[in-house]
């Protein structure tokens, strides 16, 4: 009996209930955000492609993706007979849970941050590399050759591009001297890091955006799905809500990649030139505005570029991005050492 009361005490004292509440709110908000990102993508695609896009469900089609999600929920879950059922069912949760977990550490404003740990960046990189396990599992367990090829491509791609994502963020960490996201923003009060770090920071940003797009498996790096080659790639055999998890995770991952870039390169919730410094809640607006500009950039990539081939993808990473990144890292170190950063 004693032990139970201990546990209850622990619950109350450590605010586990509070954390659970926060988690629930985050889940709801970001699930809806994911749906609206899908809508945004469709609108952007339509704009690029001389179309109108969804405009029937709700005002300007705002509820289109919600209707789609409802449809997917009500759909029958089909699958292959010879699939490895346990792993097959597990895979989508791996993908969606990891992408939602990463959201916990972002400082949306000065006060709105669920989880301010001192290894924020490290946590993000670590979490984002777990997602690939879900893709590998899904592709392998569904017992389909197209899915398997997609999953293997995904493994190769994510393992390679993880390096560039990590190294380009590490370049910026030299400048900040901290892995904690709230502190990284603090540092930027003297100028956004992309300004402070000037040349190496811009190089790092470009590498980050390329490899970030690759890590989310989006075009032009969508080898994993490659609908004209593999049908639907790793999620060929998924349907209904399980498919929706993969789909939603892709969009939340896109948001995460853009949010990391906002935090690390563009000053997070800080307003440009401190114009709304007196209004702290405006920080949320600035954060989201910057993030959506970057999200739009990634959508722009997708609807403009053709897809790379798998060997070209690896050539790009190992022969170009990685060496440039390493040189860039040294360059940044030299700049910080010689105190050549730009401070406003």
């Amino acid at each position: 009996m004693n032990s139970i009361s201990h546990i209850i005490d622990w619950f109350i004292n450590t605010e586990v209930l509070n954390m659970a509440m926060i988690a629930l709110i985050y889940l709801t908000v970001f699930a809806v955000l994911g749906l609206f990102l899908v809508l945004l993508e469709r609108k952007v695609a339509a704009w690029f492609q001389l179309r109108i896009g969804p405009n029937r469900v709700g005002y300007l089609g705002l509820f289109q993706t919600i209707a789609d999600a409802l449809k997917l929920v009500s759909k029958e879950l089909t699958g292959t007979e010879k699939a490895d059922k346990f792993l097959y069912n597990l895979a989508p949760y791996f993908v969606i849970v990891t992408s939602l977990m990463a959201l916990a550490v972002f400082p949306f404003t000065k006060d709105l941050q669920a989880f301010d740990i001192n290894i924020g960046i490290f946590f993000l990189i670590a979490i984002s590399s777990i997602g690939v396990i879900g893709i590998l599992l899904g592709g392998w367990s569904s017992n389909n050759k197209f899915a398997l090829i997609g999953a293997m491509r995904s493994g190769v791609q994510t393992v390679s591009y993880e390096l560039s994502v990590g190294l380009s963020l590490l370049t910026m960490v030299i400048l900040t001297g901290s892995l904690q996201l709230s502190e990284i923003i603090e540092v930027q009060k003297g100028g956004w890091l992309i300004v402070q770090g000037h040349i190496p920071a811009i190089i790092a940003f470009m590498i980050y955006m390329i490899s970030g797009t690759a890590e989310t498996n989006r075009a032009p790096f969508d080898m994993v799905e490659a609908e004209s080659e593999l049908g639907a790639g790793y999620h060929t055999e998924y349907s209904g809500m399980k498919f929706a998890y993969f789909f939603l995770a892709e969009f939340i991952n896109m948001f995460i990649i853009a949010a990391i870039a906002t935090t690390v390169f563009f000053g997070g919730w800080l307003s440009p030139f401190g114009i709304t410094e007196s209004l702290p809640w405006m920080g949320l607006f600035w954060f989201l505005a910057k993030t959506f500009v970057l999200v739009f950039l990634m959508m722009w990539f997708r609807w403009t570029f053709p897809r790379l081939r798998i060997d070209q993808l690896l050539t790009l990473e190992w022969k170009y991005l990685l060496p440039i990144n390493l040189v860039n890292l040294v360059l940044m170190a030299v700049i910080v050492w010689l105190n050549l950063t730009i401070q406003i």
Binding site: A45, F48, Q49, L50, R51, A219, P220, D222, A226, S228, W303, T304, F305, P306, R307
Partner: peptide, 16 residues
């Protein structure tokens, strides 16, 4: 052709 190499936008330009 564009669609097959992954550039979906060309499809609509062609059809226009």
């Amino acid at each position: 052709m564009g669609m097959d190499v992954g550039a979906l936008t060309s499809y609509f330009y062609g059809f226009r």
